[in-house]
Write a protein that binds this DNA or RNA. Structure first.
Lengths: 150, 150
DNA sequence: GTTCTTGCAAAACCTTTGCATTTGA
DNA sequence: TCAAATGCAAAGGTTTTGCAAGAAC
């Protein structure tokens, strides 16, 4: 429970963590952070670059990757591997936002889902495994409604 | 239950499926198949190429990728995404071999694990999701015994 | 003023493809 | 003989890096 009397947004937390880690502010990183905050699911670096070029503030591809690396190192974003040759990134939400991914192998659609029973199974399992587990990732592959005819 | 009175090995099944799909035999593919059969967990294409170069029969990188693609299309091998920038491949075992992966983010070690409760949770979940689920992949990230000090 | 940030271009890397040759049936 | 398999080299895409200029503190 917060002592500040309000719930910290992801952007606020990101700014705080970055500042504490000795980073200065910058327009490119700010643009990437704002875009990630507006998304409910994972984007690739190229999708991020394209979205930003179209928008208010273009950001070079190198900066997109650098920002994503920094944010990942600080556990503000996480990688999502969907088997589609490119890595996806999404923000890490501390309260409530935890989810996993459904991937349509025909059209490439990526959708989020969450399931409590699954999380409980993972938590119990994590205690019995020869690894100190910090994260987990679950991807379900199949065909979506529009592709039910392979 | 088999009508042949013996359990088919993965290599035997692979040969049969390839033959039924109209493939001829070849030394490069045979070498990749034998290597995959000897492994209990997933390898990258580069690891496969290296292992084969050192061994009896070198195989060009292009052939490694082509063979892996063919085997994946026939569901004889499956991709494993561990978040390590390269795709891994491992044989698909029909009986008993189903497992998932633990990845040490410090040293890159990949280990298999399996858990029945987790599989049950996945199966139940798969029925309630807007996707006809054909496969699932679970990766637990963390630090292994040797890396418990980041 | 010092350090972090950014863009550009080049490099590095994994993966795929084109083409000629060899091999299997 | 005909189709599949293979190796080599080149191409394609994504991601990383070097370096110089710009911005934050």
């Amino acid at each position: 429970m917060s002592t500040h009397g309000h719930t910290e947004t992801w952007i606020e937390r990101a700014e705080a963590v970055l500042s504490a880690a000795g980073h200065k502010r910058g327009g490119a990183r700010r643009a990437v952070i704002e875009l990630l905050d507006s998304q409910s699911c994972a984007l690739t670096a190229v999708e991020i670059e394209d979205a930003l070029r179209t928008g208010e503030r273009g950001v070079s591809r190198a900066s997109v990757y650098r920002v994503l690396d920094e944010l990942e190192a600080l556990r503000l974003v996480q990688r999502v591997e969907t088997g589609q040759a490119m890595v996806r990134y999404e923000r890490v939400c501390e309260q409530g936002g935890h989810h996993h991914h459904l991937v349509c192998d025909s059209c490439g659609l990526v959708m989020p889902f969450s399931d409590e029973a699954l999380e409980r199974a993972i938590d119990k399992l994590s205690e019995r495994v020869p690894l100190r587990v910090s994260e987990h990732e679950i991807v379900l592959h199949g065909s979506c409604h529009d592709c039910r005819d392979d």
